Amino acid sequence: MASTPPPVPFALARFRDGDVARLGLVVGDRVRAVDDADLGAGGLNEFLAAPDWQRLSTLAESTAGRWLALSEVTLIAPVEPRQVLQTGANYRQHVIELVAAGLTQDSSRTPDEARAFAAQLMDDRAANGEPYFFVGMPACVVGDDVPLKLPGYSDVHDWELELAVVIGREAFRVDREQAMGHVAGYTIVNDITTRDLVFRKDMKEIGTDWYRAKNAPGFLPTGPFLVPAAFVDAGDVRLRLELNGEVMQDATTRDLLFDIPSLVAGASQTMPLLPGDLLLTGSPAGNGQHWKRFLKDGDVMAGSIDGLGTQIVHVTAEAAE
């Protein structure tokens, strides 16, 4: 099963050319290599700092260059972020279900009362709260070409399909009204999580351990395409994850508690967001923890987001020692 190209005028990708990683311009089911002269910049991140999409649009309409079928090349992660920021608990319905599930353990509330109480909490958070961010490791960013190897130290590795913002112009302490001027485009990320490592068992007061739970090699399958922001209505796109052909996640970004301008603005208050950085926006309901079914050897995940194509992730188990 191959990655599906996005239905947009053009997109960017990276692919292997022998031992070299090349940046490519994708039009339909074809790709051609682009170099610094084509970009008018010294590499992808420099281009994203001041993207000239019209330049690439002109190139996309040209017959010049050597065009290859996407099926002929091996795509890799389409970005080279220096920072990866992740957003937690950002889909309203997902968090309502999680909170309600915990509340119903208290017999003082019926399931409907628990759900109504959780909904009120989320609406208050959206009105008066702030996004919740944590940091991922850029080294975990990989493409469709890298199988997801499940570490042998756990049996509860989970999926989380997410829309990821690709930062363009550097953003530092920007407000919500300015935020979208710093978004270059979007890509797909599957934020893999080892559930039994999320909360510390040796000292519960410390709380969550996102480093161990989310940062094993290959735990951020990314891409395969970087789509310019102008081609995507990111406030209303559908995310859909299939596991071995069965739909597990199916939601839209209309359900975000904090929208993309709010996330970019909020994340930029602490550290500058740099060109090419990834900002994950959260994952909707339907992960393995919900289904009580976790990833195992031989699984195939197909994650699709409107306008961004489809990402295919092949799962393998770490060989026993």
Rank of each mutant, 00 (worst) to 15 (best):
R55T: 04
R92G: 03
G24H: 05
A60K: 01
D36A: 15
A41Q: 14
L44W: 02
D38M: 12
H94M: 11
H94P: 06
A37V: 14
G102F: 01
D38Q: 13
E61D: 15
L70R: 13
A77I: 00
L56A: 01
R92A: 07
T74Y: 00
I96W: 01
L59G: 08
Q93G: 02
G88Y: 07
E80K: 13
E61M: 11
P51L: 04
R66W: 00
Q54H: 07
V95L: 15
L68E: 02
G102H: 04
R92C: 05
V95S: 12
T58V: 11
S62L: 01
P78R: 13
D35V: 09
Q86V: 14
Y91E: 13
A41I: 14
V26N: 02
P51D: 05
A101G: 13
A89T: 10
L59H: 10
G88V: 06
V34M: 08
W53T: 08
S62D: 06
V31A: 11
L85N: 12
G102N: 10
T63N: 15
L56W: 01
G40A: 09
A33H: 09
E72Y: 06
E80Y: 07
A100E: 03
S62F: 00
E72Q: 14
V79I: 04
T74N: 00
Q86E: 12
P81N: 08
L59K: 14
L70S: 13
N45I: 01
V31Q: 11
L75E: 05
L70K: 13
P81K: 05
L75I: 06
A100M: 06
S71I: 03
Q54I: 03
E72N: 11
L68S: 04
L98Y: 10
Q86P: 00
P81I: 07
A33V: 12
V84E: 01
A41T: 14
A33E: 15
G28W: 03
W53C: 08
V26L: 04
D29P: 02
G24D: 06
L25D: 06
W67T: 07
N90K: 08
G65F: 06
I76G: 05
P51Y: 02
A64R: 15
V84L: 02
G40C: 09
E72K: 08
G40I: 11
D35R: 05
A37N: 09
W67K: 11
G40H: 09
L98Q: 14
W53M: 10
L48E: 10
D52I: 05
Q83C: 05
